[in-house]
Amino acid sequence: MSFSTLRIRKAVSGLTAATALALGATVLAAPSASAVDSSGCTKNIKDQTLQVVQWDHADMHTGPGYSYKVKKSVFAGSDVRVYCTAYKKGTTWYYGKSGKTKGWMDTHAFF
Rank of each mutant, 00 (worst) to 15 (best):
M1K: 06
M1S: 08
S2M: 14
T5S: 13
R7P: 00
I8D: 03
K10I: 13
A11H: 05
A11T: 08
G14D: 05
L15G: 13
A17C: 08
A18F: 06
A20N: 07
A20W: 03
A22C: 13
G24N: 14
G24I: 03
G24F: 12
T26Q: 10
V27F: 05
A29V: 12
A29R: 09
P31M: 02
P31R: 07
S32W: 10
S32K: 15
S34F: 11
S34A: 11
A35R: 12
D37S: 12
G40F: 11
T42H: 11
T42Y: 14
K43I: 08
N44G: 13
I45C: 04
Q48P: 00
Q48R: 13
Q48D: 07
T49W: 03
T49S: 05
Q51F: 03
Q51W: 02
D56Q: 15
D56G: 11
D56C: 09
H57K: 05
A58P: 01
D59I: 06
H61C: 00
G63P: 00
P64V: 03
P64S: 03
P64T: 01
Y66E: 03
Y66W: 05
Y68E: 03
Y68S: 10
K69D: 14
K69R: 13
K69Q: 15
V70R: 15
V70G: 10
K71D: 06
K71Q: 12
K71Y: 11
K72Y: 07
S73A: 11
V74Q: 04
F75G: 05
F75R: 11
F75W: 10
A76G: 08
A76L: 02
A76Q: 13
A76M: 04
S78W: 05
S78A: 13
V80Q: 00
V80G: 02
R81M: 03
R81T: 11
Y83R: 01
Y83D: 02
Y83E: 09
Y83M: 08
C84N: 05
T85P: 00
K88R: 12
K88I: 12
K89M: 07
T91C: 09
T91M: 10
T91N: 07
T92D: 08
Y95G: 08
Y95V: 11
G99Q: 04
G99A: 04
T101D: 12
T101E: 13
K102F: 01
G103A: 02
G103I: 00
G103D: 01
G103Y: 01
D106W: 06
T107W: 03
T107R: 07
T107S: 11
T107F: 02
T107P: 00
T107N: 08
H108Y: 10
A109L: 05
A109R: 00
F110M: 03
F110T: 02
F111K: 13
F111R: 11
